Structure formats: C-alpha cells, structure tokens
Amino acid sequence: MHRRHLLAAALAAPALSLLPSVPALAQPQRPPMRTRWKVRASEGFDALAFLGPLAGGELYLPYYKADADVFAAELPAAAHAEIAALWKEAERAQFGLLGPNLSVIFSNGNDGDLAALIAGAADPEARLLPAYRASPYWAEADWRWFVGAAPRLRAVFEAMQTAGFAAFRQRRIGDIDARIAELTRSLGDYDVIRWHEKLTGRGFDPQIEVVLLQFCKPHGIKVQGQTFLQATDWGVPITVRNAAHEMLHPPIPMDGPAATAALALLGKDPLIPRIVADHDPKWGYTTLEGMLNEDMAQALDQLISEALGVARNPADRWRKADDGIHVLAGAIYGMLRQDRWVESGGSIEAWLADAVRAGRFDPPRLHAIAAQVLERPVDALWPLG
C-alpha cells in the first residue's frame, strides 16, 4: 500500500467508527502476469557486436575504443583489415550495419559461441537458411550478400577464436550470472506482452528473451523470435523500453494493404522521403518502408512505456535520437493519443488503413500533429536547427 493511502486510512478511522458497518468493497484483482522474462548472455552475439568497434565504426568507438585497440593487437593484421573491409562492403551493398544484421541471420539457436558462428558460416544453407527464410526478416538480397561473404566471415571468426576472444570477453563482462539473476527479478512486475497484444490487436508468445552483451552499445537489437540484445549495464527502465519496442518489429505486415497504402501516400510527402534520403546513414532506416516500420514501433512503444511508468518525454526523446529524424513517429504517436488508443486498443493495422483513408497522413495534417508532439515549428521539423 502506498504511504499516502496508509495516512488517509489512519485519518479516516475515527469518523468511520461512528457509522454502521458495511461490507468491504472487493478490490480489483490484478490480472495474471502475461509476460515471462528470460535473461541470458551470449558469446556469439558479443563477437558479432564487437565487429563494429574492430571495424573502427564511429558509433562504437566512444564506448569501446580501448577494448578494440587491446584485442586488435592480438589479431593478425590481415584479419583486422578484413573486418573493416567487410563492414564497408556490407553498407555499400545495402546489407546494412554488419554486426546487427549478422545477429539476425545467426539467431534462432546459432549464437552460443564463436564455434557456433564458425559452423554457421561454414554451412549456412543447412544451419541458418531455414529459420531465417521463415522469419519476418527474410530478404533474398541480404542472404545472397551473406552467402558470398560467409567464407571470409568464417576466417574472421576463426581468427577471433584463436586470438582468445572468449577469455577477453569474460574478463570484461565480469559476474554476468549475478547480473542476469538481478535483472530477472526486477523485470517481474512489467507486463509488456499484455500491452503489445492490446495495442496491436494480435497475439504474442508470452516469453521475452533478453540477451545481455558487453559490446553492443549503442544498439538494442531485435533478432529472430521474441529475442533482443542489449548492454549488460542498462537498467530496468531501458530494458523495459527496449522490450516494448523490439518485440513490435514489424508492427504490421509491411507488404500488406495498410502499409502499402501508407507508403504510397508517404512517398508523395515533401518531407518524409527527404529525411529518409538525406539523413546520416549510420542511423539506418534508409528506405521509406524501414522508416515506417521503425516509427510505428516507436509510437507504440512510447504508449507502452507511458503505461508502465518508464517513458521519456516524447519531445525530448525524438529530439535527441538519431539527429531528430523520427518525425513520422511523433505524428503517429500524436494520432494514437488523439484516439485514446492506450485505452481502447485494437488492430493497429486496421487503424493505419483507416487513418490513411481519412486523410490523416496527408502532409499538412501529418506535419501539424508532428509539430505539436515534437514541439518544433511545422515548417522546421527537420533537420534540427
């Protein structure tokens, strides 16, 4: 019981004693917990995440430059150079950020350690393709690039194994078992899945798997299944926000009629396609479909985080994230707030189709609601001044 409730009960007691007794009102019961949390670590995912610092990626060096310098000294020079080359080639081929996208391909049981990565790269058709092809992340062009790069990746993984990555990571990660136990206990009060189901209108597996990594900052990464990767030292509010967001990908079928109609309209917007084309590609979201996918998930996760008491202020959140590019997220969030979606819930795919048909995604209306939420002038939504 909250302290203010205890105080109110104590002050009311003398007055209540003068009244006839009445049956106590039944207190509303808390619904059974829908979410099951599973927390673990992964050497394999950490090795994939560490490719970013080893490649010299500017996103990663503020966190891991010292670690990258120490471990690079143990690698053969050719292997170190190969990592940087593969990272650049992946970006040029529109495979995307090498470490995060490899994590998607190697997920679904292929991430245990470097030996598992080596085995997957040696026989990708048998070990990786069936699960990846069946996942929402399947992209034939990405698979073709990966298969072409697999022998080189295997050689990189073997070099990391020989250089002692497992022992290096263990020294850096510390008592990960204690951290897993602590986080598992703390997450028990946060029923994220119940909110996912209410606000999307679809079913979710009750289990959320959180994989703690030493080397993944600044990313939280959704992989196959209801699994996401995050840094070991991120606290409960960040973990809950990550879970609220990552489980939503994709929030609707991106090849379905609602998404197709929204993308057709957004493609004519004078602002949103310009954001997609002109923003710094290090943030990702370099296609209009990718931006819609991400920003619908961000709008919904903001509502979930608010409901669970772990939210950031939306204007601050979207001003500080990714150079302010998520204008569409602010607009969608604003529309959902107008519709009191957190109270009603329902099919988010049907909601999007109705919003497009009603003209709410027409540029003037879209920009106006985004400006209101983001606290920016409607004619200066992006880039940020």
Rank of each mutant, 00 (worst) to 15 (best):
Pro314Trp: 02
Asp316Met: 09
Ala13Gln: 12
Leu128Tyr: 04
Lys282Gln: 13
Lys88Asp: 14
Asp269Lys: 06
Asp339Ile: 05
Ala277Gly: 10
Leu303Gly: 00
Pro53Cys: 05
Ala126Ser: 15
Val240Asn: 00
Ala116Cys: 09
Gln372Gly: 07
Ala368Phe: 13
Gly256Thr: 11
Leu199Cys: 06
Leu6Gln: 15
Leu352Thr: 03
Gly359Pro: 05
His279Arg: 09
Thr260Tyr: 08
Trp351Thr: 01
His219Phe: 15
Gln214Val: 00
Gly120Ile: 01
Ala355Arg: 03
Arg319Ile: 04
Thr286Val: 12
Gly235Ser: 11
Ser305Ile: 03
Gly201Val: 07
Asp111Asn: 12
Gly267Glu: 11
Lys282Thr: 10
Arg319Pro: 05
Ala243Glu: 02
Leu292Pro: 00
Ala355Lys: 03
Pro23Gln: 15
Arg3Val: 14
Glu294Asn: 14
Pro273Asn: 08
Asp46Lys: 02
Ala134Asn: 14
Gly290Glu: 11
His2Met: 13
Phe71Asn: 00
Ala178His: 14
Gly324Ala: 11
Asp379His: 09
Met291Cys: 09
Leu292Lys: 02
Ala149Arg: 04
Glu289Arg: 15
Arg172Leu: 08
Tyr137Glu: 10
His219Met: 10
Ala231Gln: 10
Pro76Leu: 10
Asp278Asn: 14
Asp113Phe: 06
Arg376Asp: 03
Arg274Gln: 14
Leu374Lys: 02
Ser21Pro: 11
Trp195Cys: 02
Ala24Phe: 10
Thr239Asp: 03
Leu199Tyr: 02
Gly120Asn: 04
Asn108Phe: 12
His2Val: 12
Asp46His: 06
Ala297Asp: 03
Trp318Met: 11
Gln224Pro: 03
Ile193Glu: 01
Ala115Met: 07
Ala181Tyr: 12
Ile221Phe: 04
Ile118Met: 09
Tyr333Cys: 05
Glu140Thr: 12
Glu125Pro: 07
Trp318Ser: 02
Asp233Ile: 06
Ala84Gln: 05
Ile275Gly: 00
Phe157Thr: 01
Leu308Cys: 08
Leu328Gly: 02
Pro377Glu: 08
Asp123Asn: 15
Ala73Ile: 04
Pro151Leu: 08
Arg179Met: 10
Lys282Phe: 07
Glu74Cys: 12
Glu343Ile: 09
Val327Cys: 04
Met160Pro: 00
Arg337Pro: 03
Phe106Tyr: 13
Arg319Gly: 05
Ala26Leu: 13
Ile176Cys: 06
Phe228Cys: 05
Glu140Lys: 15
Phe215Val: 01
Asp316Ile: 06
Asp111Lys: 05
Val70Gln: 10
Phe71Val: 00
Ser305Gly: 12
Thr286Pro: 04
Glu182Leu: 13
Gly201Leu: 07
Glu375Gln: 15
Gly359His: 07
Arg274Ile: 07
Leu61Trp: 01
Ala126Tyr: 08
Arg365Glu: 10
Arg241Cys: 06
Pro250Tyr: 10
Val310Pro: 01
Asp379Met: 07
